[in-house]
Amino acid sequence: MARLDRAAVIAGAWDFVEAHGLDALTMRKLASSLGVNHGTLYWHVENKRALVDALAEDLLAGVADVDPAHQGADRLIALAGRLRSALLSHRDGARVMAGTFVRQPNTLAFGEAAIAAARAAGAQSADAALAAFSVQYFVLGFTIEEQAHQQLTAADAQPTDTADTTDFDADRFPLVASALDTMREIPRDAQFDYGVRQLVRSLRFTERRGRSD
C-alpha cells in the first residue's frame, strides 16, 4: 500500500466505519484493515478519541461555505441543511459528531458562520451563541434518529418509527396513531425543513438588511 499518512488513516477509518459501524472501530482493528502495525497509527493519531475527533473535523470540510450576502436567517437554515448532508454522507456520521468538542479549522469555521448568521439576523452576542448551538443540536438529534432508522431498515429489522402504528393500542392513543400516520406521508427532507425553519423562526430575529457584523 501507499505510504501511510494522516489523510490515509482518516480515509481508512471512514472505510472501516462504512463497513462495520462506529461501535466496532478500534485502533487495532483499523491498523489491521490498513495492513500496518498497531503502533504505527499512533504516529498520526494518539488514540481513538483523537481519531473520532479527526473524523468529525473531516465531516465539516466546506460545510461553512454559505453565501455571506444572503440574509442571516436564510444562512442559518442553509448551514443546518449543509450540516445534515455532511452527517448523512457517512455511516454513523451524526454519532461521530455528537459528543466531540473539536477545536480545528473546519469545526471552528462552521461555528463562526452559524454565529455570524444569527448576528446578521438580529441576535446579540449571547442569543447568537444560543441560536447557533440550538440549530446544531437540532440537526444532530434529527440525523442521529434518521441514520438509526436507515440502519434498522438496512438490517431488515423491524423499526419502531413513524410508519409503524401496529405495535400499540391505537384506540387508547388515537392522537399518536394519527400523528404517526401523518408523519409516514411526509418525507424526511420535508420533516427536517419544517423543523429547522420553525426553530429559526421561533428565535424572532429581526433581519438587519444591508448591515454587516
Rank of each mutant, 00 (worst) to 15 (best):
V139H: 01
L51H: 10
A163T: 11
I115D: 00
Y194A: 08
A61Y: 07
N37F: 06
H44E: 11
A163P: 00
A163Q: 05
A129H: 12
E18N: 10
A98K: 13
A2D: 09
R204D: 06
L22Y: 03
D213S: 06
L34V: 10
L88H: 07
Q124T: 15
I115S: 03
W43T: 15
M27P: 03
F192V: 01
Q198W: 02
V102L: 07
V135R: 00
D65I: 03
L79F: 05
L130A: 09
A129G: 12
M97W: 13
Q198K: 15
V66T: 13
A86Q: 04
N106E: 04
R91Y: 05
D74H: 15
T26R: 13
A64N: 10
R49W: 04
I10P: 00
A13L: 01
A120E: 04
E18A: 14
D189K: 14
A54E: 11
V52P: 00
L203E: 08
D189F: 02
S85R: 15
R28D: 06
R197C: 06
Q104Y: 05
R184Q: 10
F138K: 01
W43Q: 11
E207N: 14
G141I: 10
I115H: 07
R201A: 14
H20P: 00
D171F: 05
D92L: 03
M97P: 00
A131L: 10
P187I: 06
L79S: 01
Q158A: 11
A128S: 14
A69H: 12
R3Q: 10
R188L: 13
V36F: 04
M1A: 14
T143L: 08
T206K: 12
R3S: 10
K29C: 03
A128G: 15
R75I: 11
S89H: 12
R184H: 12
D58G: 04
R49G: 06
T153G: 06
Q104H: 09
T153E: 06
A120R: 01
A179E: 05
L76C: 03
N106I: 12
R91V: 11
V9R: 11
A117D: 01
D23S: 15
L55F: 07
L88W: 00
R208Q: 14
R211M: 08
G81T: 02
L55T: 07
P187M: 09
A132K: 07
L199D: 05
P105W: 13
R103M: 05
L175C: 04
A54D: 11
R75M: 10
S33W: 06
L88V: 12
L199T: 01
A177Q: 11
G122Q: 08
F192Y: 13
N106G: 02
A121Q: 03
G72H: 02
D193Y: 01
A7V: 13
A116S: 13
P187H: 12
